[in-house]
Write a protein that binds this DNA or RNA. Structure first.
Length: 469
RNA sequence: GUGGCUAUGGUGAAGAGGUUAUCACAGCGGGUUGUGGUCCCGUUAUCGAGGGUUCGAUUCCCUCUAGCCACCCCA
């Protein structure tokens, strides 16, 4: 007791076998294992975060049922080929952000970087084309991208996504945008959607040629990176922030001018639908998005805010992907979808509505305190009675000290405390303390549940009728 | 993947090349063994890890790791 053996931080490693030796305090603390930390880019969603996540989940579900979507859960792990084919080999997501590995059996698997490819794979695999079309599916879950972490960007992040498969009508596109808009609005986030059309693969190819021709003529002004992009994925040049490119962009051919008639009409109708509902949008001729599968409509939501737009501030996005089913080996199936970045949404919610500083304990109306071994046993049983009666009761059975228990009762906001000690056990009673008044009465233990029930009902009655007793 | 900045108890901060590293909040224990919200006391950090410079570093240098910011890209 006299020696100040400082309890060394609990080693997280397994109990080492090599202990035993006489370790002085300093030596042992030097050896203390480093606390393990979360993997880079991953994070814990702590109890304090949960209310926000619960809210997003609630609205995700509410809107899903309101708009007629059914839930689907696909595996987090898929064949790498699914993403290479679906998302596109030349995209950054596949080229440098995919978590891939080879199994002992020699398969190449990957953690999903997004949800659409999996959902469509599932649609094809399970022959959902035999269901009434379109099939509306929604999902929610973690996605993985091996990107460099930054604010609003994690290697494991969460998306809620909505897919409509088997319908080419522009109203589908519009309603997806409306759904996303309402999702965000329902969480207190006002947004404007940026929207563009990429046309059909053919019109897009024509446009691409024109664009490449244009930028080729200005090749001298391009950076190395942009030259590479010119070859690989010229559309990406459009959202470059390189001042030189920004300048060149102004003169560059615009995709709308290259759209085929059908795509143009489709696009116009999407916009008309949005006008009709009053969803704010902004045409963005440079919006192309980083996944190859998009055709026609593409869009992204941005929060309306005064503060300077952060580059990674898109809260979600989506578009039409009429060619994806075929890319994945299914028959040609028009489809559209969108997904929302829950992490970013939650961080917006936190900005608007910061968490309270004090981490308060879960609140309860009734607290059960015990004294002595007899009291503790009786209290344990009484607790079960309350639980069966549907009344939540707080307790601290592991504490012997009544004072400590009363402190906890107070912290948990209890209105009533039930104290049961040796005396009460012998008398078959219980002390019922009114925490606000500080008064106490003796109640028959058999009537404890009934008595509390009465008080709870009474209080709730008083609350609404404003009667003062 | 590239560049810049940062790294002090559970949290938020302060600090100086040199014997006991400050403050607040939270946590735990106690203030005579059956009672709360106030108050008082105690306790909770070898200053991210490793290496170097130095008589001496937590404070200077290097490496690593992580976080933040920007780019890339995206949610």
């Amino acid at each position: 007791m006299p020696n100040k053996k400082t309890p060394v931080k609990k080693p997280t490693a397994k109990p080492a076998s090599s202990e035993g030796g006489v370790t002085t305090a300093s030596a042992s603390s030097k050896k203390a294992a480093q606390p393990l930390q979360v993997v880079r880019g991953m994070r814990d969603l702590l109890p304090g975060d949960q209310p926000y996540w619960r809210q997003t989940n609630a609205i995700a579900e509410k809107l899903a049922s309101a708009y007629g979507y059914e839930r689907i859960d696909t595996p987090i792990v898929e064949d790498t080929a699914l993403f290479v084919r679906g998302v596109g080999r030349a995209t950054d997501i596949v080229e440098k952000e995919l978590y891939s590995w080879e199994t002992l059996g020699g398969e190449s698997l990957s953690l999903r970087p997004e949800g659409t490819a999996s959902v469509l794979r599932s649609y094809i695999q399970h022959g959902m084309l035999n269901m009434p079309q379109p099939v509306r599916l929604w999902y929610k879950g973690p996605m993985f991208r091996h990107d460099r972490p930054q604010s609003g960007r994690f290697r494991q992040f969460y998306q809620a996504g909505y897919e409509v498969i088997g319908d080419a009508d522009p109203v589908i596109d519009a309603q997806l945008i409306i759904l996303g808009y309402n999702f965000l609005k329902g969480l207190g986030i006002e947004t404007t959607v940026r929207i563009n059309s990429l046309g059909t693969p053919e019109s897009r190819a024509n446009y691409k040629n024109a664009l490449v021709a244009y930028f080729r003529s200005k090749k001298a002004k391009l950076s190395e990176e942009d030259k590479k992009r010119l070859l690989k994925n010229p559309l990406r040049l459009l959202d470059s922030k390189d001042p030189a490119i920004v300048e060149l962009k102004a003169e560059a051919p615009q995709i709308v001018d290259w759209l085929d008639e059908e795509s143009k009409a489709h696009f116009m109708r999407v916009l008309e639908f949005l006008d009709e509902v009053g969803v704010p949008y902004q045409l963005d001729p440079y919006l192309v998005r980083g996944l190859d599968y998009y055709t026609k409509t593409v869009f992204e939501w941005y929060a309306n805010s005064d503060d300077q737009e952060l580059s990674q501030s898109a809260l979600g996005g989506g578009g039409r992907y009429d060619g994806l089913a075929e890319l994945l080996g299914g028959r040609p199936t028009p489809a559209a979808g969108m997904s929302l970045g829950l992490d970013r949404i939650v961080s917006r919610m936190k900005e608007k509505n910061p968490p309270s500083q004090d981490h308060r304990m879960p609140q309860v109306d009734v607290f059960l305190a015990q004294l002595g071994e007899m009291g503790r046993k009786r209290a344990l049983a009484l607790f079960e009675e309350f639980r069966e009666a549907g009344i939540p009761v707080g307790e601290a059975f592991s504490k012997a000290n009544i004072k400590a228990q009363m402190e906890i009762a107070n912290k948990r906001g209890a209105k009533w405390a039930i104290v049961i000690g040796q005396k009460e056990v012998l008398d078959g009673t219980v002390q019922l303390r009114d925490m606000d008044a500080g008064s106490q009465e003796i109640v028959d233990v058999k009537k404890a549940v009934h008595e509390i029930k009465k008080k709870l009902a009474n209080r709730n009655g008083v609350d609404t009728s404003s009667v003062t007793v």
